[in-house]
Computed example of a mutant assay.
Amino acid sequence: MVVGGGYAGQLAANLAARRTSGRVTLVNERDRFVERVRLHQVAAGQRVREHALADLLRGTGARLVVDRVTRIDPRTRTVELAAGEPLRYDTLIYAAGSRADLASVPGAAEHAFGLADVEQTVRLRERLARGGTVSVVGGGLTGVEAATEIAESHPRVAVRLLTDGVLGAGLSARGRRHLARVCARLGVEVREGARVVEVLPDGVALAGGAHLAADTVVWATGFTVPRLAAESGLAVDEHGRLLVDDTLRSVSHPDVYGVGDAAAVRRSNGQELRMACATGLPTGQWAVRVIGARQAGRAATPLRFRYINQCVSLGRRDGLIQFVRADDSPREAVLTGRLAALYKELVVRGALLAQRHPWLPTAPRG
């Protein structure tokens, strides 16, 4: 049983159906696979092709159940659904994913738009079509991609990017300089040290009392995970992410594995992996590898993972590839411009290709 049909879950279901001896069921609330790394393009009004989960699973023998999981009962090994009858599992892969953190400040859930699900993104696209002023809150990679994509696609829209720290704080000096140049070229107003404490119907309130007017507020400060694991009695961390060992197995329930954003996965040195497609895909693959090994009576190999780069699209004609060390800290080396935009596009297409061909390598092993 795989709970969640995002990058990690759909790949895991597809691969498990091909590489293990089990009967595989994928449970997902929607019948479509969402290319979440393209949602900023959807928000900007670009046409992005949709993909049916049934098409991605075709020929594998995996069963697709379109429903919302309301509870996991680890004692009886059943998954309870919002509409259908409960489903039983022997082994469960928990891939519930993440969503925009709209509860971190007052008013965000009511007045801001997140970029983590299709429905909110479509509503944001409709709002942006009216024009006006847009404030993107969050200076991380999601906020940067959203602000530059909107500014390029809607040159008459005034775009402001707000961050409570330094823009591109996780980038090298060369990366930050390129990011600043692109924002200036696209007319994106950047405000550093601007901590938003409330989202209002007509803009945002900053720490210190300042009010910044905006017709549209885009919330890109981070992600949170569903409460499903915690409410089902599985061991989780303080953020609600499933606690797993170095083979991605739940520390409290050995028949449950965690992958992707909803699992607190760590490297061998203890570093927790960040929420990203770049970590979701290899953890989905590794969990299936471990399950297959244990089915065959072999020893499970601990996860081996290292970071290579961070890929940032800056509109359709520019980009930034920040090369990083194994621990995700930035090197000074970067790739910028049109070549970087092409690089990022190839990475995004590769992530989708892995959903159809889940055995393709998605990260170096060791």
Rank of each mutant, 00 (worst) to 15 (best):
Y7L: 14
A8Y: 01
G9D: 10
Q10M: 15
L11R: 04
L11G: 03
N14M: 09
L15N: 05
R18E: 07
G22N: 11
R23Y: 03
R23D: 12
R23Q: 09
V27Y: 11
L39Y: 09
L39H: 06
Q46S: 14
R47P: 01
R49C: 07
T60F: 01
G61F: 13
L64T: 04
V66C: 11
V66R: 14
D73R: 03
T76V: 06
V79M: 06
E80N: 13
L87D: 00
L87T: 04
T91K: 12
I93W: 08
Y94K: 00
S98H: 08
A100D: 13
A100G: 15
A103F: 14
V105K: 01
P106W: 07
G107K: 10
H111I: 13
F113D: 05
L115F: 11
Q120F: 07
Q120I: 08
Q120E: 13
R123Y: 08
R123P: 03
L124H: 00
E126P: 02
E126F: 02
R127P: 05
A129T: 04
T133L: 05
V136L: 06
G139E: 06
V144H: 05
E145P: 00
A147Q: 02
E149V: 13
E149L: 06
I150W: 00
S153Q: 14
H154M: 05
R156G: 14
R160K: 12
T163V: 11
G165L: 09
G165Y: 10
G165C: 10
L167K: 12
R177P: 07
H178I: 01
R181N: 04
R181L: 12
C183H: 11
V188D: 03
V190G: 02
R191Y: 11
V197F: 02
V197N: 05
V197S: 02
L200P: 09
V204E: 05
A207E: 15
A213Y: 09
A214H: 00
W219D: 04
A220E: 12
F223P: 02
T224G: 13
P226A: 03
R227F: 01
S232P: 02
V236D: 01
V236W: 00
L243I: 08
V244L: 09
D245L: 08
H253Q: 15
Y257Q: 08
L273W: 08
A276L: 06
A278K: 05
T279V: 13
G284E: 01
G284R: 04
V290R: 14
I291A: 12
I291M: 08
I291K: 01
Q295A: 13
G297D: 07
R298Q: 14
A299Q: 13
A300T: 08
P302L: 08
P302D: 09
F305H: 12
N309V: 10
L314I: 12
I321H: 00
Q322N: 06
P330E: 00
A333N: 03
L335K: 07
L335I: 03
L335D: 03
G337Y: 06
G337V: 11
L339N: 10
A341M: 03
E345I: 06
L346W: 15
L346S: 15
V347Y: 06
V348P: 07
R349E: 13
H357F: 15
P358T: 07
L360D: 05
P364K: 15
R365S: 14
G366Y: 14
